[in-house]
């Protein structure tokens, strides 16, 4: 039981990662693929945030009587990764909009030409 409770965050990470990854592979709708990609990336954000936690540590703000602080660096790193994720989503959705204009559909199984299948 401890194995689950001690690593609770990491179980969440693994679950989200696989759920997102599965959606990317299995979804038929291109927008849903992007959503899956987002969930996949979000799981990594949680992984980074979880690893910054130091057991018994407080928030990394200097204060009297506190000696143990959590590590703020992974949080800052993931801020950058979130920006990258947002940019990727924007580019992805923009391409989906143009696919809709060009093909008239965003459903993978409705593409007529086999070569265009994603």
């Amino acid at each position: 039981m401890n194995f689950i409770i001690d690593y609770y965050n990491y179980w969440v990470v693994v679950f989200l990662m696989m759920a997102g990854f599965y959606t990317v592979i299995a979804a038929n709708n291109l927008v849903k693929k992007i959503v899956g990609l987002n969930i996949f990336q979000t799981s990594v954000f949680i992984l980074y945030i979880s690893m910054g936690k130091v057991t018994g540590g407080s928030a990394p703000i200097v204060a009297d009587g506190i000696t143990v602080y959590s590590n703020p660096l992974p949080h800052v790193l993931i801020l950058t990764a979130i920006v990258v994720g947002v940019a990727t989503t924007a580019v992805g959705l923009a391409i989906v909009v143009r696919i809709k204009h060009a093909y008239g559909t965003v459903e993978e199984n409705e593409f007529k030409d086999k070569d265009d299948l994603i």
Binding site: L37, Q41, V44, A81, V84, G92, L117
Partner: peptide
């Protein structure tokens, strides 16, 4: 217009690859 589906496929694969690198660096 086929460049769009190619770019979309590239985006999905590329992002998965980059996220894998991010996990590894973490």
């Amino acid at each position: 217009k086929r460049c769009l589906t190619a770019a979309f496929r590239y985006l999905v694969m590329g992002t998965i690859g980059a996220t894998f690198i991010l996990i590894g660096v973490g």
